[in-house]
Amino acid sequence: MTNRQRYIRAFGALHVSPERFKEVYSMEKDRKTSHVGRIALIAACVMALLTVSVYAANEATDGVVFGKIVDLVDAVTGKLIPRDEGYRLITEDGRSYDITVVTGSDSGTSADGSVSYQITYPGQWDGIAADVVTPSGDVQK
């Protein structure tokens, strides 16, 4: 008998317990499943948050004035009057809103209560200087 044959016979007695590995696959599968489950749960939560955000954003943008103000005109006379109260805010896209207060940089709610607005404008007020209107975030529809 050669050394190799002796060696193989001696060390052939060493066997790993197969029982030990029966559960390994299922345990790993469970781990992966729970990992995937956690990812799915997190993804669902993120999607839910995004959905809520989008919904809120939709709600917020619905009826809110965006864009550059073209004119601020007197709601009654139609003249460009850049002070006092009772003005109509007309945006680039043609929408118009009756607003009650515009002084320098201001915010408020349109007269009919449909829009909350915030306006800032640079420099001299000439009736078309206001250039930013942003949603206030608490739109009343």
Binding site: R6, Y7, A13
Partner: peptide, 13 residues
């Protein structure tokens, strides 16, 4: 335990 019946193999091990 492994080589109860083959002491020679146990000696090599």
């Amino acid at each position: 335990r492994l080589y109860a019946d083959q002491p020679e193999d146990g000696a090599l091990f």
